[in-house]
Design a protein around this nucleic acid. Structure first.
Lengths: 109, 109
DNA sequence: ACCAGTAGATAGTAACACTGAATAGCGGAC
DNA sequence: GTCCGCTATTCAGTGTTACTATCTACTGGT
């Protein structure tokens, strides 16, 4: 992955995962697949699981273990109220940045 | 500063500084002031100087020392060719992220 | 003599994404 | 019946980054 993308994902990837979970509950492997389908082709499992551990510890998601027909049991993550609050805050922060960068891009500096 | 903003700035702040320099050369203290004027009210000098040291070491800027009427000599940073290339790449990476997040925000997840 | 404003530097910290590898369960091919 | 591939999770170690807090240094005004 490009160095710039890696750095830019910091603080954003967590929001992306929360946003994905806001649509419907999902488990790690599935989330990785969705990210890939969305164009984030270079994000590997290890990275996603680290995010999931973090948002669980922060109490932004509820977790249930669901047996899989194929492979070890899945840990299904569901966004809870605190997670939704955090996601809202994420979008506000993102919106702020987006605005400022749009101005900069227009060249009024 | 909010935790989310701090993390989100990683990888972005450097691009912001390069973008500011693309308009015209500037020195650290001045750049901090411009950032503040742009709404980044919580970014302090120490943070900006760290970025400047980094982009200088990467060879993205040329540096000249200019005496100041008031206070110690200024280090004026000028974006060079490598810096411009890096800035282009930054905007591409940013554009990619912006697109994906816009989709996510629209709720198609 | 002191202080505020200007200007830069730096050591230490915390957070984060990445790398690479390991573990574990199941199905099918051979 | 053993090996391979796919599913699924975990974890230790690394590098990069922004922040905190503090320090130095120069000038002008009170």
């Amino acid at each position: 992955m490009g160095r710039q993308m890696t750095e830019m994902l910091k603080g954003v990837l967590e929001g992306i995962v929360l946003a994905i979970l806001s649509g419907q509950p999902a488990y790690g492997y599935e989330i990785t697949a969705r990210l890939r389908a969305r164009g984030f082709t270079d994000i590997v499992e290890g990275t996603v699981y680290a995010v999931l551990v973090r948002i669980e510890q922060k109490g932004l998601v509820d977790v249930t273990k669901v047996p899989s027909e194929k492979g070890p049991p899945r840990k299904v993550y569901t966004l809870n109220d605190r997670g939704r609050t955090d996601l809202d805050e994420f979008w506000r922060t993102w919106g702020f940045l987006e605005e400022r960068l749009e101005q900069l891009k227009q060249g009024d500096n």
